[in-house]
């Protein structure tokens, strides 16, 4: 009994520490893409560790069932939301590619979802759509300021 309680406490501290680590990454990392990566990985593992602690504390069938449902829902949805955030951040053109280092979609010419802003590679053969250009310039100014 005492061993189980100690295991619950240590797993709880590990899960809370992973959330605090995600917060540290959110404060210290330089870019929206790297911040999204840190939050997705650390926080997903933290919630799963806390779910294991909940099961050890009370291993009854209803608790195990609810915990399994929470674990599946969380593990499936967190990478999807991280992917959506990274995609939106790249598409908004405010990710600093000189910090991130690699801009593979622009190098391979795969930028088909529109990133004609100043921080990314601007294709010279791409015609400037006036309405879209107004949109991106306004949003880019708002993003930098």
């Amino acid at each position: 009994m005492n061993v189980a309680e100690l295991a619950v406490g240590l797993l709880a501290v590990a899960g809370g520490g992973l959330v605090a680590l995600a917060g540290l990454g959110l404060l210290r990392l330089p870019d929206a893409l790297t911040r999204a990566s840190a939050v997705a990985k650390a926080a997903a593992l933290g919630v799963v560790v806390l779910l294991v602690a909940v099961v050890i504390r009370d291993p009854s069938p209803t608790v195990i069932l609810v915990v399994i449902v929470i674990a599946i829902a969380h593990v499936v949805t967190v990478p999807l939301s991280g992917l959506a955030i990274g995609r939106a951040a790249y598409r908004s053109g405010t990710t600093a590619t000189e910090v991130t280092g690699v801009d593979e979609p622009a190098e391979l010419g795969l930028v088909d979802f529109g990133t004609p802003t100043a921080t990314l590679q601007h294709h010279p053969d791409q015609p400037d759509d006036d309405a879209a250009d107004d949109d991106t310039q306004r949003d880019h100014q708002g993003g930098v300021a």
Binding site: G16, A22, L26, A36, G46, V47, I85, S92
Partner: peptide, 30 residues
């Protein structure tokens, strides 16, 4: 940027879930 704010909101959601799980351990209330 706005993407940073969305990342912060996601961490806020996840921290809320973690706090709920820790409260279920702390209060022994399933």
């Amino acid at each position: 940027t706005a993407a940073d704010r969305v990342v912060a909101a996601e961490l806020g959601f996840i921290a809320t879930v973690c706090a709920l799980l820790l409260l279920s351990i702390r209060l022994e209330f399933d």
